[in-house]
């Protein structure tokens, strides 16, 4: 470890401890319970925020520390969350009364479907597939896990196909049925009566034409089995222009959202940690 690294580490530790003590004293004055913990959490959040922001300069050991901490904690958290919400919260209460009691979950016997069958028996399917997936851990029987993977990918792709067919195909067609000239009282009327209704009509008409032509030309751009030449190519060109204008608008909108996130984080640093703003 170089001398510079040692100095930086000492500075960071001292600053952290100083901030912790200061925030804890502040919390104690404010009558907060567990003021030591409160001071630690605020300081920790602030230092981790700064550690992540330090990536703006370049990759560095402080960022690496924050990154590994984040990845490790989040991976552990989601695994724990998956176990307690999916297996303990949803599966066990439907399959085993004794295990439900062990985990203090209310047992759900399901509905009787006639004969020997209960609705809850369907939950054995994910159990079986889960076991099949775990077979990956075995070098000899790892291939069995492909059955579960094939089922997951195939079934969900089929289900998604119906959803896409509805939202991106059928509903897209009917959304393109728009009035293009109806109710339009003519350009002469527009100029002689600059009323709101006439302007509104013009805007609506232009908007409908953009939707109509935009959809048609956008679709033409996504034709893959025909060369984009001649009139077809021009329509395709117009389609990609429409797409690019849409992306530009979307870009600006989303960037504004990101800036508001940054403002939120900086507000935390200045208000909750440094206490400069109120």
């Amino acid at each position: 470890m170089s001398r510079l690294a040692i100095i930086v580490t000492i500075c960071v530790v001292v600053l952290f401890l100083g901030s912790w003590i200061f925030k804890a004293l502040q919390a104690q004055d404010a009558g907060v319970d567990h003021y030591l913990l409160r001071g630690f959490l605020v300081t920790c959040s602030a230092f981790l925020t700064l550690a992540i922001l330090s990536f703006l300069y370049k990759d560095n050991p402080i960022y690496k520390f924050a990154e590994h901490l984040y990845v490790g904690i989040s991976a552990g958290y989601w695994m724990s969350q998956g176990f307690w919400s999916t297996i303990v919260g949803n599966l066990i209460p439907r399959l085993s009364q004794s295990l439900s009691g062990f985990f203090k979950q209310p047992y759900n016997a399901g509905e009787w479907m006639g004969g020997f069958f209960y609705t809850n028996w369907v939950f054995y399917v994910p159990v079986i597939f889960g076991v099949l997936l775990l077979m990956r851990l075995s070098s000899k029987y790892g291939w069995i896990s492909r059955w579960a993977l094939a089922f997951i990918v195939g079934t969900t792709a089929g289900l998604q196909f119906i959803r896409y067919m509805r939202s991106d195909f059928i509903e897209q067609i009917s959304s393109t049925f728009v009035p293009l000239l109806v109710d339009w009282q003519g350009i002469g009327h527009f100029f002689s009566n600059l009323s709101l209704s006439a302007t509104g009509q013009l805007v609506a008409m232009v908007s409908n034409w953009i939707i109509f032509l935009g959809v048609l030309c956008g679709l033409i751009y996504f034709f893959f089995s025909k060369e984009h030449t001649g009139l077809f190519g021009k329509a395709s060109r117009f389609g990609i222009w429409i797409l690019m204008v849409t992306f530009g608008a979307s870009f600006g909108y989303t960037v504004m959202g990101r800036v508001s996130l940054l403002v939120g984080r900086i507000t935390f640093l200045f208000r909750d940690w440094l206490g400069i703003t109120s």
Partner: peptide
Amino acid sequence: SLKAQDYAKAAVIICALLGALALNIAAA
């Protein structure tokens, strides 16, 4: 499947043209 998708898009274009035409003529 890709070729079928292109024909499906052609069907969408035809339906959109017919639908917009029908809607406007009927409304007029």
